[in-house]
Design a protein around this nucleic acid. Sequence first.
DNA 1: CCTGGCAATCGAATCGCTTCAATGTGATTT
DNA 2: AAATCACATTGAAGCGATTCGATTGCCAGG
Lengths: 337, 337
Amino acid sequence: MVTIADVAKHAGVAPSTVSYVLTGRRAISARTRAKVRDSIELLGYHPHAGARSLASNRANVVALVLPLRTGVNVPVAMRFVLSVVTAARERDQDVLLVTGDQGVAGINRISGSAMADGLVVMDVEMHDERVPLLRDLPQPSVLIGFPADATGLTCVDLDFSSAGTLCVDHLADLGHREVALLGAPRAVYERDTGFAHRTMAGFTSAALRRGIHATTRSCESDPAEVTRTVTALLAERPALSAVVVHNEAAISPLLAALRTEGRRVPEDVSIVAICPDEVTDRVFPPLTSVQIPTEDLGQRAVELLMAKLARQGVAPATLLTPRLVERGSCGRAPLPG
Amino acid sequence: MVTIADVAKHAGVAPSTVSYVLTGRRAISARTRAKVRDSIELLGYHPHAGARSLASNRANVVALVLPLRTGVNVPVAMRFVLSVVTAARERDQDVLLVTGDQGVAGINRISGSAMADGLVVMDVEMHDERVPLLRDLPQPSVLIGFPADATGLTCVDLDFSSAGTLCVDHLADLGHREVALLGAPRAVYERDTGFAHRTMAGFTSAALRRGIHATTRSCESDPAEVTRTVTALLAERPALSAVVVHNEAAISPLLAALRTEGRRVPEDVSIVAICPDEVTDRVFPPLTSVQIPTEDLGQRAVELLMAKLARQGVAPATLLTPRLVERGSCGRAPLPG
DNA sequence: CCTGGCAATCGAATCGCTTCAATGTGATTT
DNA sequence: AAATCACATTGAAGCGATTCGATTGCCAGG
């Protein structure tokens, strides 16, 4: 193994000088810097991560805590993971993957052993057992999603309440008088997941304000279940003219079910999806949607974490404003009767 | 931070004794062991990962190299990731996630800095630029998938060639005379991915041997594209009575397209899927399938890696035998005409 | 010519753990 | 009672980086 001493010897300088060239924490003359860089290149030197972390108290590793619970949409979760990894790498951090079942014990282990300098925590529930723990961890953390009590934490999320509102307003503006929300699987609501509840709250309160009728339904990811749910919904609410779908796995089956029932989109039923952009494009017809900016959220989370690591103050809450993109799956409400 | 010295003082022993209790590398009396364990518990001690890795040359970290290329099915990839993480944790290893774009540079960095003791490499191509690199890395590695030249490497995979054969034999036994393979997206073949080619080879050679007609088609993941591909296929091959689908994303759209075309499963068309079990259950009708044992593969990969780390010899190639599970999507071939 | 100040570089201590040679301690054998 | 042995434990030397105070060389100002 090539050590810093080898590089130093080869370049004819002291080890500390090599270190300063690498970290840039002290001024080093251009000549020396070049010499050292050359030696590093030539010898193929990589600093030993363990040694570095021991000496500097910085591991240059971010832990990504990802409890893949039932009901979470895996491709969407993966988009977050990718954006976090990408953003982290841009800042010279590596990513340690801590998955669900490890839970609180996993966080304790990672934190206690100083494997990571900070944590990004995904899939946060309203009453998450990890939250009190994160609050008094020595390492900083950023949550993607909001728990019920976010004091002392840094959280990032889309403003799902506004997203719900935005959908209703869009549909109400088009004259719809009766709308429905096809939500996440039941399990997601039952464990009190913020984004699901908040969307629903925004949705129903906006409907109230606009004086239109709103139905909400949880919806499993199994296509057969979706079909059943949709069919039942259409039967129960004959005047229903628009559906907001906040469940990536339900989108295709929903469209198929409507086709089977002979309802055209958007002539008979308007649809707004709340999901990442990539999903809406993979489907026919393309859906008007409120975008979930996974890329952006992951990146923000890492940015905030880095800021906290640099002991800069950061906003405790970052709520991204939702944007509705029209793609033609919404039309004016059909005349009653 | 609680250090090993603190624990030692608290337990009234030498630091080295604490270390030996932790690693079990030397006999320590039951009494001392208990004392030390208590102190560890009481003080909430976690060994500093960096210090440990520096002193012992072992990071207790496995790097998972996951280039999420276009065409790979994300949920399936995630199943592998989960099984690797789970298996790793059972062996007290953590998992560092190295994603695609980092490629060769990423592997060099991880290896050079001794961040990980070994690598699990996914999504291996036939002519993968990472392969020669892995061959002379100081750290051991295990590939999930086979490159063209696997000498000097340890690889794990399902025997996809047999899987292709198995499907054809099953269908031929049922009297089918003309079958088709709906494969991975074109990009996957173009970059010479082993599993896709091998399935195809097994499929076509078995068809040849059984004297039945075989068509093969690559197939994009976009549902609209799938529909197009299927429709064209049915038009071109009017006598086609069975389809083998080796593309998770194509399954639902395929079934939908057949329904649209008025072909019943299995009365008019028999279907065999090659995919993880979870996929076949989420679909109606349940599909007869050759299972891709993601769980098993991930676990094997980690097992092999651990064996290599322990300097035990391991088989260079592990090919799991495919199993076909009947679920009722295959029937006897309809009589011609 | 000496001094003060600045920039660049060096040397040594330090981080927390593992490991190995050495030591202590009874029990067993001679 | 001395010698031997196995077992349990200790002390000190690293592992490879960072970091801080000290040192060097050089130039401007007096």
